[in-house]
């Protein structure tokens, strides 16, 4: 093995470590999603948003709940995409 080979393999390894680290971070992010979601959907928040107000004709609380819901879905989709990419990078 010559010097350049050694160097590339070290940088490969470093890349892999980085990928692993970012994957671990993504998994932690994914694990945090339901906690955040659950927290934002606790009855107290719902009560706060159950105020007598409307957004675009729909009651505020409806917009709030469905908005959080959609937000969770979008975050999950982004994370799933990233995790899949990391998965591919390994294969």
């Amino acid at each position: 093995m010559n010097a350049t080979d050694a160097q590339t393999s070290t940088s490969d390894q470093a890349d892999r470590v980085l990928i692993q680290q970012s994957e671990r971070r993504d998994r932690s992010r994914a694990a945090a999603l339901p906690l955040i979601g659950f927290f934002l959907l606790t009855p107290l928040f719902i009560r706060v948003f159950a105020a007598d107000a409307t957004v675009l004709g729909a009651p505020l609380v409806v917009i709030y709940i469905f908005g959080i819901w959609l937000g969770l879905i979008i975050c999950a989709a982004l994370l799933a995409k990233r995790l899949k990419r990391a998965d591919h990078a390994f294969r």
Binding site: R27, F38, A80
Partner: peptide, 17 residues
């Protein structure tokens, strides 16, 4: 009624593991 669908949503978006 949304609670019945929010629960599974929370599980699926987060408990991939």
């Amino acid at each position: 009624f949304v609670t019945i669908y929010l629960g599974p949503t929370l599980v699926f978006v987060g408990w991939l593991h």
